[in-house]
Computed example of a mutant assay.
Amino acid sequence: MDGLPLDRLPTHRHDGPMLSWSETATVTFHSGRRSWIVPPGHGMWVPGGAPHGVEVLRAGLGSALLFDPARRVPDWREPTAFVVSPLVRALVRHLSELDGPVGAARERAEAVLFDVLRPADALTIPLPMPADARLRGIAERLLADPGDGRELAHWAVEVGAGVRTIGRLFVAETGMTFGRWRTHARIRAAVPMLAEGVPVGTVSRRVGFRKAAAFTDAFRRVTRRLPSSLSGERP
C-alpha cells in the first residue's frame, strides 16, 4: 500500500504481522494502553493478532505491508518502533511492487528486510486511565482542557472526596501522582500542535504552562526529546 495517504484507523488486528512506516506523516500508533508517536522516517512492526489503531497528527504519506503468518519473521512479541534506513525504505518499496504474497523473489527480499530491521527508541507518552468513576471524570475533563490549572484539592471537593483519598487512588490506579498524570496529559495534548508547526511558546501556554522553559523541561523529562524536534523550531 505504498504511497497511500494516511487516515484515522480504528482499532483492528491482522492474522499475520504488519510493517508500517511514515514517509511524510506524523501519527499516534495505539495498541492496548500504550501509544507511540511515529514521525516521518520511522515505522512500527505489529505482530500478528495484536490490536492496533492509528490517529493522524499531521497528514502525509506512508506504507504498510502484511506478511504471511507462517513465514519466519522478527521475534518481536509486541508492537515495536524502528527507524527507516535507506535500505529498509528501498526493500519496503520493492516488496510493495512485487506481484502476489508468495514467490522466491519476495522471500529473498523479506529475508534481507528482516535481517536489517532494528528496534528504535520511540517517543512514548504513558497515560493510563483510572477506572474509579470519580477519578475518570477528573481525567476526562483534564484531557478535554489540558490547560486547566486547578489543583487536586479543588477536584477532591468537586467529586466529594478527601484530597488524600483521591491522591492515593490516582497512584493506585494509574501508577502516577495526580501532578505527574496531568503533566503527561499536557505533553500528549501538545504533540499534535507541535506536529502542525504551532510555535513552542504558544503550545506551552495552551496546555497550561506559564513559561515555555518549564514546558520544555517537562517535555524533555517525559519524552527524552525537545519539543522543537517535532515543531521544526531551533532549540
Rank of each mutant, 00 (worst) to 15 (best):
A153S: 06
L169S: 15
P39Y: 09
V92T: 00
E233M: 01
T177V: 07
R206H: 06
L91K: 03
L230Q: 08
G201M: 04
T26N: 00
E107D: 15
R72S: 13
A50F: 14
G232A: 09
E173K: 03
I187M: 13
G137K: 06
H52Q: 12
H52W: 10
G160L: 04
T183C: 11
A214H: 12
M193Y: 02
G201Q: 03
V200H: 09
L127C: 10
G149A: 08
V112L: 01
D121L: 11
A144W: 12
G201D: 06
R134L: 13
W155D: 03
R58Q: 13
A144F: 10
A90V: 01
E110K: 05
E78R: 14
L194D: 05
F82V: 10
A50Q: 12
P74T: 04
G232E: 06
V112G: 00
L226G: 15
S204Y: 07
E196V: 06
M129H: 11
P146S: 07
P17D: 05
R210D: 14
R186A: 15
G197I: 09
A139S: 15
F209W: 04
F215V: 14
L57M: 10
P86T: 03
D2L: 13
L142G: 01
T216V: 14
G60S: 05
V157K: 14
A133E: 15
A81F: 03
F178M: 12
S20L: 14
M18F: 11
R186C: 11
L95T: 02
E158F: 08
A185V: 15
V116G: 04
P10M: 08
L66I: 06
V159R: 05
V46P: 00
V88E: 06
H184S: 03
R71M: 07
D2Q: 11
A153T: 06
P40C: 10
G16V: 04
D7R: 15
G53P: 13
V27H: 00
T223K: 00
L6Y: 11
G49V: 06
D121H: 11
G137E: 08
R186F: 04
A59P: 07
P5E: 12
G149K: 00
P126M: 13
V56H: 01
R118W: 01
L95F: 04
V116P: 08
H52L: 07
P5R: 09
H184C: 00
A50L: 12
L143F: 11
L127K: 02
M44A: 13
H12C: 04
R234N: 07
P74L: 05
R164I: 09
R118T: 12
L6K: 10
P146T: 08
A111Q: 14
V200R: 13
A50V: 15
A139P: 12
